[in-house]
């Protein structure tokens, strides 16, 4: 039914279309007695739909109501959405801040008005009660570990990421670098970062060189051309590492078109289908999945607990991540499909 109405309105593109459909979103009536929470993402991505799946499971399990909001335009939209939530009145918010450092005052303001927890990416200096998420530094190190297994002989490695303003991106990147260069494990509270534009990072005794980190500002065409440019520039490139979900599929495309499947290894993060397919086919080595559904589930569980008066013991609750390689790909993909179905918007 829904699809049918979409095709109809598509024919009335573009003016009429925007009027239809807007009213179709389910209202929040009948939610008076239930606690109402909001789950605010840092952008728009299928990753967040997987998280939403966890939210939906938790909603049922704990008898609460939760809105999932995806701000399309970074900090500004995120702020606008959260302000609206506060204005409406909300029992608690779980958020993935776009720019933790600079949003701190605003997050504090939110925390004064409702229960605020962070997930996925933390804002450690804010008054949020708890952070639920992957230890991105640790996950980065795990990803570095995958690279090591993919390239036991060592070689040149290139990193690709959407943007490095985000804490999780920086931590992840540092984890990969530290692991590959055999540096000691840093504590998450005080990670020391290599400069964002550092090139040819290596240390004595390390078999690995991290050539560069290229950013694309979430433009998929840019991501792909970045990968292509790296292939053109570095003849001895051995491995491409995508730190954001869409980065590794872009690398896969570029490598495939350059006819270098197998020559250049790929390690990714998260669980886009193209990457999972490549792992199945043996074209990519593996990925680190943060099991996004756990984020949603744990966040709502935590909000409910706090609302009922139980303060969290720690300010940090780790969600475990999962290494996915050819060995466990089948099982993982099935789980993901199930979650994706459940988490679809609306």
């Amino acid at each position: 039914m829904k699809t049918y109405s979409k095709i109809l309105s598509l024919l009335c593109v573009p003016i009429l279309g925007s009027f239809f459909g807007c009213g179709e979103k389910p209202g929040e009536e009948g939610a008076d007695s239930q606690a109402s929470f909001a789950y605010v993402t840092n952008g728009v991505d299928p990753f967040w739909d997987l998280c939403a799946a966890g939210v939906r499971i938790a909603e049922k399990e704990f008898g609460v109501n939760c809105e999932v909001l995806m701000p399309p335009k970074g900090v500004v939209d995120q702020k606008r959405m959260m302000e609206t939530l506060l204005a409406k009145g909300i029992d608690g918010i779980a958020v993935s801040p776009v720019d933790a450092e600079n949003q701190t005052p605003f997050l504090d303001e939110v925390a004064e008005n409702t229960i605020l927890i962070t997930n996925d990416s933390d804002a450690p200096k804010s008054k949020r009660l708890v952070f639920i998420g992957t230890n991105n530094y640790k996950a980065g190190r795990a990803l570095g570990g995958l690279v090591k297994k993919a390239l036991p002989e060592g070689g040149e490695v290139m990193l690709f990421v959407g943007r490095l303003e985000q804490l999780n991106a920086r931590q992840r990147r540092q984890g990969v670098i530290d692991e590959l260069l055999g540096r000691p494990v840093q504590s998450l509270e005080q990670v020391k970062y290599d400069p964002v534009d550092a090139t040819n990072l290596t240390t004595e005794g390390s078999k690995y060189t991290i050539l560069d980190t290229r950013t694309d500002n979430f433009d998929k065409a840019r991501a792909k051309s970045n990968a292509e440019d790296a292939i053109a520039k570095y003849k001895d490139l051995k491995c491409m590492v995508g730190l954001f979900a869409y980065n590794s599929p872009s690398c896969i495309d570029a490598i495939k078109e350059a006819g270098k499947l197998g020559t250049i290894k790929i390690c990714g993060f998260d669980e886009q289908d193209a990457l999972l397919q490549a792992i199945t086919d043996g074209h990519a080595y593996g990925t680190i999945s943060q099991q996004p559904w756990e984020y949603g589930y744990e966040s709502i569980k935590m909000l409910k607990k706090i609302l009922e008066g139980t303060q969290p013991e720690n300010t940090y609750q780790e969600v475990s991540f999962l290494e996915v390689t050819q060995g466990n790909i089948g099982e993982f993909w099935a789980k993901k499909k199930e979650m994706a179905e459940l988490g679809k918007s609306e």
């Binding site: 433009d219 998929k220 065409a221 792909k224 193209a274």
Partner: peptide, 11 residues
């Protein structure tokens, strides 16, 4: 076709 995957919010 070039990208093979279209992101509605970003493409």
């Amino acid at each position: 076709f070039e990208l093979g995957s279209v992101q509605p919010a970003q493409t």
